[in-house]
């Protein structure tokens, strides 16, 4: 008997300001799988990530998305997070005056409360955070700062992965986590992600470049173009893309009839 998928998306359509961006997405993520979604700028990659996290600027106009069989699109963003969805933002916002420790503790306890678990007190929380910091090689100074305030691009991305490690999501969506990172930062972030891979959780990596996939090897690669997944394959598909560029995809798209 097959396991229930973590995420099942069927014919998902979404618009922003009346313009349709997602034009029928189908995607299934099973436990233990890492999916990469690649595509040129404007293909709808980030829109997909934001729609799954529940950003209200994107209007779902059709289709469905199920998280462990439950209607994901019905849930508020916080409910999704408590049910195990984590979006690593492409552009994490700076929150001046919001203490990182306070923020993370509020997040962890919101999830725990939802699961019917006891909330962590300050000592237990600190122990958890310290353990995750060790795994991801993050300095304790981060906890004393305001969330993302004055962080470099790389620090912000690393903070996203750190939060992910603390919150232990069942479905992690990484939106262009590799963009703006130099090779060392990329390695650190990829390392962190690999440590969080497990047989119970799934990941969706949204990326423009094949580079990230050298460090995080996906099980499935999808090519998103003009709001639809036009090609799916193994990890070698990413290499093919790298070799031929996105023009090759566009030609392919025209062949299958999803051009402009």
């Amino acid at each position: 008997m097959s396991q229930q998928p973590i995420l099942e998306i069927r014919d998902l359509r979404a618009s922003v300001e009346g313009k349709e961006i997602l034009k029928g997405i189908n995607l299934t993520v099973n436990p233990g799988e890492v999916h990469a979604i690649m595509g040129p700028n404007g293909s709808g990659k980030s829109t997909l990530a934001q729609v799954l996290a529940g950003h209200k600027a994107y209007e779902v106009t059709g289709g469905e998305a199920l998280l462990h069989g439950n209607d994901l699109l019905e849930m508020d963003p916080e409910e999704r997070a408590r049910e195990g969805v984590f979006l690593a933002f492409q552009y994490p916002v700076e929150l001046p005056g919001v203490n990182s420790t306070y923020f993370l503790k509020a997040a962890v306890n919101a999830v725990r409360k939802h699961r019917g678990e006891e909330e962590l007190d300050a000592a237990d929380f600190l122990a958890l955070v310290r353990q995750k910091m060790k795994v991801l090689d993050v300095g304790e100074a981060l906890l004393k700062r305001s969330v993302n305030e004055g962080f470099s691009g790389g620090e912000k991305k690393r903070n996203e992965i750190f939060q992910m490690a603390v919150l232990e999501p069942t479905l992690a969506i990484l939106d262009e986590t590799d963009s703006g990172l130099d090779i060392d930062a990329l390695r650190v972030v990829a390392d962190g992600v690999n440590k969080l891979r497990g047989s119970e959780n799934g990941m969706v990596l949204v990326t423009h470049y094949q580079r990230l996939l050298e460090y995080i090897v996906p099980d499935v690669v999808h090519v998103l173009y003009n709001g639809r997944i036009i090609k799916s394959g193994g990890k070698e598909l990413a290499l093919e893309l790298e070799e031929h560029g996105y023009d090759w995809v566009k030609e392919h798209a025209e062949e299958v009839g999803v051009g402009q």
Partner: peptide, 20 residues
Amino acid sequence: FYLRARGIGLAEARAILTYA
């Protein structure tokens, strides 16, 4: 949205940002 995407409810998210 950032706070809510981490599981923090709307009322608490507003309070956190207001205090900030």
